[in-house]
């Protein structure tokens, strides 16, 4: 290191070195820098409109911890906006209990209204029991049920949008995974727009921060708690994508951001419609929710039959 490790703004010892532009920042100025980048992204993309009620998916893990902390700062300048945090309790033994406690501490600190919705309440059983004989599919089944749970939460809390804690790493990995799978609809699908009259828009305010920046942020804010890893977290392709992009980022700083910008550039040129629908939606023959086919994904993963309802 040729230069002393001092904050480019105040000269105190630096905690972080960032690129583009190259700068070193102390704890206080890094926190401010990260928050301002998120605020700027929210405003530039008009993620939150005047008077919006924003549902914040709060698992209690690192990303959603940063999300609720940063959004709580953001709404100090936007008193017209209301945040509501919701925690989905999937029913995963020896995992979710700890993160729910973390979520409860966060809402107590931020003063944000909080609700908990469980898979048992919505789907009749815990994830552990629902996937007992198909654990290899747990992640994808959980993803389908979590999305439905958030939609249900948005309905209950009359929310205008759903904010999730997806970070820059998640987004870059998803682009690569979609490419590797040849999944063009997923690559171009932009859920941030919602679908007027159908879907609640999903917003990802943290997509401008890397996973490392997010963990650094919550550590410096004093909210980092090592939590257990989800026992079902074994998405092989995502781990491969993480490794590839992590190595490239180390060699070519800015790779993650470039991947996401490339995807955004493509999306601007392709008209959006919900995945596979060509603009047409039906109601599920079993549960009545919106679907592109005849039976929605939730009913399919739960093996529901028409007589079940």
């Amino acid at each position: 290191m040729n230069n002393p490790n001092l904050c480019s703004i105040c000269g105190k010892p630096a905690a972080v070195r960032l690129n583009n532009p190259e700068r070193r920042l102390c704890a206080e100025h890094f926190i401010k820098d990260a928050e301002e980048r998120v605020f700027k992204a929210i405003d530039a993309a008009e993620m939150i409109r005047e008077g919006d009620r924003v549902l914040v998916g709060l698992s209690g893990g690192k990303d959603s911890t940063a999300l609720i902390l940063i959004l709580s700062e953001y709404v100090k300048t936007r008193p017209d906006v209301k945040l509501i945090a919701v925690t989905i309790d999937e029913g995963i033994a020896e995992y979710r209990e700890d993160t729910i406690k973390a979520a409860e501490r966060l809402v107590e600190h931020t003063g944000v209204e909080h609700g908990i919705i469980s898979f048992t309440e919505l789907f009749g059983d815990t994830l552990d029991r629902l996937v007992a004989d198909r654990k290899n599919l747990a992640c994808s089944i959980c993803g389908v049920l979590r999305r439905r749970s958030l939609t249900e939460a948005a309905r209950r809390f009359d929310a205008d949008s759903i904010a999730t804690g997806h970070n820059l790493d998640d987004e870059a990995q998803s682009v690569l995974m979609n490419m590797l799978r040849g999944d063009k609809p997923s690559l171009i699908q932009d859920s941030s727009l919602g679908y007027t009259g159908y879907f609640v828009p999903r917003i990802k305010p943290l997509a401008v921060l890397s996973e490392k920046e997010i963990v650094t942020y919550i550590m410096l804010k004093g909210f980092y708690t090592p939590l257990p890893e989800c026992p079902y977290a074994v998405t092989a392709l995502r781990m491969e994508a993480r490794k590839i992009i992590g190595t490239l980022e180390e060699r070519y700083p800015g790779t993650k951001l470039n991947i996401v910008r490339f995807r955004d550039g493509i999306r601007k040129h392709v008209p959006y419609s919900p995945k596979g629908t060509k603009g047409k939606l039906n109601t599920c023959k079993i549960c009545g929710e919106l679907t592109s086919g005849e039976i929605c994904q939730v009913c399919r993963v739960l093996n529901r039959k028409q007589s079940d309802e």
Partner: peptide, 9 residues
């Protein structure tokens, strides 16, 4: 005990 960039000695 203090978070630092990884180019510190």
């Amino acid at each position: 005990g203090n978070i630092v960039p990884d180019d510190v000695i």
